[in-house]
Design a protein around this nucleic acid. Structure first.
Lengths: 213, 213
DNA sequence: TGGTGTGAACAACTTCACAGCG
DNA sequence: CGCTGTGAAGTTGTTCACACCA
C-alpha cells in the first residue's frame, strides 16, 4: 500500500537489480509478466518481489501480472534514475580509466563531468567532449562549478582518506569508494564501498566448503 | 566455541573485510587490539566481531584482546586466502585490462594465469611474465592445462551467458561476474555478481531521501 | 580488573498463505 | 479463475548482558 514506512535496504538493492531483467523483457517485446515468472528470472522468491514493490505502491493487476514498461518506469522513478546524476572521478589509474570509459554508467543516467589526478602526465587530458582532467588541487572549485553530486574514489588506498575529505569539503554528499579502506566521514555523507577481493574471498571460502576441489 | 554449525554468510563477508584493517595495524606495529577498538575501526558493533570470530574458534585473550598477527593468520586460514588461487579473465576491454593490472589481487593470493578474448588485435598480447591472451575458443584447453579455479567475466553482457557456459564446461567452479546480468549455471558452480551501477542506484536513492540536495 | 565468549532477547528480513480484486 | 497485495508466521542476523577467565 506504499504507506510511508521504513523500507528495508535489502529491498532497495533488489529493486535496483530488477530494472536489468525488465529492460531485457522490454527489448524482447514481453508486455506483461507475473511475479512468479519474474522471480524465476531474478532468482528470488515471488512473494519477495510482490512485497518489495508493495512498499512503493500497487503496480500490478490482479489475475494478470505487471506491465513491463510501466513497472520499469515506476522503478526508475523510485530509484531516481530518471534524472541525470553528475559524477566526479578521482584517480585515473587503470581502474579509473576503465570507469570513465564504461558505457553502462551513462546508459543509466550517471555522467562523469569531472576527473582529477595528481600525475602531471594525466592533467589536461581530455575525454569525451566535455571532460578534462584537472589537478586534485582544483577539486573544490571545479566540482562546485559543475554541480557534482557523487564522487568516485579510484586512487591508491593511501590517498583515499585525503580525497574523501576533499570531496566532503567540496559539498559532495555521496561517495563510491573503490579503495579497500573505509574512509572516515561526516554523517551527512553517504559512502558505498566496492572491493572485488572481498568477493573473491567469499568465493574461495565457499569453494572449499561446498564442492571438493 | 567453533562448533560445526551453520555460519551466516554475512559473517563471512565481514571476516573478509576484517583482514584489511588488521594489515594496517600490523604495519603500524600494533600488537594487540580489543574488540571495542577494532569495532570502532571497522564501524561495526564490538559484539558482532566477537561473535563472528567465535564461529571459528577462540582467538582472543580475556582481559587483553586479540593478537593482531595471530588473528590475521587465523582469518587468512579461515578464508583460505593463505594459498594461491588461479584466475582466468575473459574479456580484455577497459575493465578487463584494469583488473589484470590491479595489484591488489595478487597481493591477496589471486593470480591471473590466463586471459581470453575474441578480438584478433588482443590475442597473443603478453602481460606480466607468464600471461598470454588466447582466443576464447581455447578456453577449455588452456584453463584445464593451467588449473584455473575461478573465472572472471568482463565481457559485454551479450556474451556473458556463453562465456559462463564455457567456463562451467572447462571445470571452473566459481565465477566473478562483472556483467550486469545473472547467468544461468548449474548448482555446482558459485557466482558472485558485481554491478557498480547498483551501488550508484543505492546512493541516488538514499541521497534524495536523507539529505535534501 | 578488563575484555572475551556466548546464551538469550531483540530486530530485521523472508516466506507463507490467503483474502480480495480484475 | 489467477495473480496481486499483505498480515502473520517463520527464519536469519544483530545486540545485549553477564558469566568467566587471564
Amino acid at each position: 500500500m506504499g504507506k510511508e514506512l521504513r523500507i528495508p535496504s535489502a529491498t532497495i538493492e533488489r529493486i535496483a537489480f530488477y530494472s536489468r531483467p525488465l529492460e531485457d523483457l522490454l527489448v524482447k517485446g514481453v508486455r506483461v509478466i507475473s511475479s512468479d515468472k519474474f522471480a524465476d528470472m531474478c532468482k528470488v522468491n515471488p512473494a519477495q518481489i510482490r512485497k518489495d514493490l508493495s512498499y512503493f505502491g500497487e503496480f500490478g493487476v490482479r489475475g494478470v501480472g505487471y506491465d513491463v514498461r510501466d513497472l520499469l518506469t515506476a522503478i526508475k522513478k523510485i530509484l531516481v534514475s530518471d534524472r541525470e546524476w553528475k559524477l566526479a572521478l578521482v584517480g585515473l589509474g587503470n581502474l579509473g580509466m576503465a570507469l570513465l570509459r564504461h558505457e553502462n554508467f551513462l546508459k543509466r543516467g550517471y555522467r562523469f563531468v569531472a576527473a582529477f589526478d595528481v600525475d602531471p602526465r594525466r592533467i589536461g587530458r581530455r575525454f569525451a567532449r566535455e571532460l578534462v582532467v584537472h589537478h586534485v588541487a582544483r577539486l573544490n572549485e571545479v566540482s562546485r562549478e559543475l554541480g557534482v553530486t557523487i564522487g568516485v574514489i579510484a586512487t591508491p588506498s593511501s590517498q583515499a582518506q585525503a580525497v574523501s575529505d576533499l570531496l566532503v569539503s567540496a559539498g559532495v554528499k555521496a561517495i563510491l569508494n573503490f579503495s579497500p579502506i573505509h574512509v572516515r566521514k561526516p554523517e551527512s555523507c553517504l559512502v558505498e564501498n566496492v572491493d572485488f577481493t572481498v568477493n573473491l574471498d567469499n568465493l574461495a571460502y565457499h569453494l572449499t566448503r561446498t564442492a571438493a576441489l
